[in-house]
Nucleic acid binder design. Structure first.
Lengths: 260, 260
DNA sequence: CAGTGGTCTAGACCACGGC
DNA sequence: CCGTGGTCTAGACCACTGA
């Protein structure tokens, strides 16, 4: 019995989920093997079965294990750590893969909301917002153009941030602005002349476009962004299962949302 | 109290989740409004609080509601129905949006696994598999090229299916072959001459590429597919939240996986 | 402060798996 | 057949919200 190392942040089921995740990474339960039964886990960790189940549910949602009535759970894959924060924040993501995040501000201004921006942020057209265009780099190589509209509440803090080197997400969270939900729409477009110049590629090259609306924990919109990635530099990965599929395929109706 | 309409397929919490979903769609709880408390729901539906919570958890995972300790849950968005089956199966998806799915078989043969296919399907290079190339259409308009490698167990059934009109997924499930987990990788590439010919577009146009590995409930690989969508015809959407993010951003290392 | 969601327990019954 | 996971209940305590 290892002495509980970090009783710091809480929740028994999170603790157990974390331990099991580690146990899968470090080869205790390699892919293809079977996990101990719920009863055994409950016994050895001294918690109720329902608490164990809750931990196991998390691993299932991450696509790490499969379960079938009557048989023990099977390990499917090794965990890929990537938190919500790493997904929303380019800086955090870059650091997590061992790259140095960089950014060059192309434009930062207070302006009136366009029709699309107003709709996505729940504002009226013309309402003030903060618009930021940045070229993002991995260790010096440009890989993405980010065009983001922030609601004023969040955007006005940007003036105090070193946009070329600091993480906007980190600094905004220090000011109590927390990104909690996001909806991403992903499609492909050809690089415009503008895109090509900023990303240092030939016009027409395939671009992976991500449009993203992020809200605070109460569901109030905080930002609406259109990010354009160099097509062969970055990919998105989704795991899903019968019981749960956050990924949706839809028709690309609006080719709107282009930067004004 | 509406008389329980369909007691057919079971699970109280699913039932309740479905009802709440409908209640959100039909305006009973519009976005921005607050849901009844867990206690009230438990009371009025005659179930335990934990069962109610389980139903609410599902809506939360779908990004429909937000919750915070101490306050009632907030409705964030209207549901977009799309099941796992609709995501994996082009036919089901097409029908769900009111289009007529179509397909033209370009190639169907038994062949040996390439290095990539072998790795993704857990086979040895050269092991037999079934390879299928189809152009998929929505009401006559080609929108996607599908290049799929099936493990023999699944692929051999294909001979008995009318590939131009029937749904492979539907027919395979009738034979007890169930797709339960999938991992999708999405990036952007330029259309090759081949792509352009099959999709009736100009070469070089941006293509949304989805590479997908699907497994059965036990985690055994069933298919590995590379699908290429016309860039401006289709988009993928993901919702995620702080607690749960199945979407991952990664570097596109392997530009492998091209059709042999 | 009362109400609400977040966590956890202890136990029950069932359907299915595999020996 | 027993062990397993899937579902459900009844109740407990706590941390936080909001009037």
């Amino acid at each position: 019995m290892a002495p509980t190392p970090a009783p710091e942040n809480s929740a028994l089921y999170r603790e157990l989920a974390m331990r099991l995740r580690h146990a899968i990474s470090d080869g205790t339960y390699p892919p293809g093997s079977r996990l101990p039964s719920e009863h055994e886990l409950a016994q050895s960790f001294g918690m109720a079965r329902s608490t164990v189940r809750r931990a196991l549910t998390i691993l299932g949602e991450d696509g790490l294990i499969a379960s079938h009535q009557g048989a023990r759970r099977t390990v499917l894959a090794e965990p890929r750590l990537q938190s919500f924060g790493e997904l929303r924040s380019f800086s955090r993501w870059a650091r997590s893969i061992g790259e140095v995040p960089g950014g060059r501000v192309d434009l930062l201004e207070r302006r009136g909301a366009s029709a699309v921006q107003a709709r996505e942020l729940g504002l009226a057209p013309g309402d003030p917002l903060v618009y930021l265009v940045r070229v993002r780099m991995l260790t010096g190589v440009p890989v993405m153009i980010e065009r983001t509209a922030y609601v004023e509440r969040a955007g006005l803090r940007l003036s105090f941030i070193d946009l070329e080197h600091e993480s906007i997400s980190d600094r905004l969270e220090e000011h109590g602005i927390v990104f909690a939900h996001a909806e991403h729409t992903i499609d492909a477009v050809n690089a415009s002349a503008d895109d090509a110049r900023l990303l240092e590629i030939e016009p027409g090259r395939a671009i992976l476009r991500e449009r993203r609306r992020a809200t605070d924990p109460q569901g109030r919109p905080l930002e609406w962004s259109e990010d354009r990635y160099v097509g062969d530099g970055v990919a998105f990965t989704i795991r899903n299962s019968l019981a749960m599929s956050p990924l949706t395929r839809g028709r690309a109706v609006s080719t709107t949302g282009n930067p004004p």
